[in-house]
Amino acid sequence: MIAENDATPAEIADPVRMIIDEDACIGGGVCEMLEEATFLLDDDTVIAAIVGDGLLARERAEIVVDRCPGRALSFVEIGSGLEAGTEGRSPGEGDED
């Protein structure tokens, strides 16, 4: 079941936009467990994908990034020009450390 992500930036405190590195994803499913309204593993490839606008509160985003077993998640500031999803991840941007 896909939960609907109808939150807008105005409703999320300090929102950031999630980015997935497809090559690094191992299909561990931790993101889907923690934030089922934002992440869903693809049925065929078992690679995580973003549902909806990919926005999460910064505090939650930091937890999901930290727990991802494949180290495949990062986030960017809203308005950075990068779209949510699996493309457009530029090195250094949105990396946690």
Binding site: M1, G27, G28, G29, E32, L41, V46, I47
Partner: peptide, 16 residues
């Protein structure tokens, strides 16, 4: 190798 093997079976063990 691990990523390849894991992806082959990970599907059955996702939360959903």
């Amino acid at each position: 190798d691990h990523t390849r093997l894991r992806r082959l079976i990970a599907k059955s063990f996702t939360p959903k």
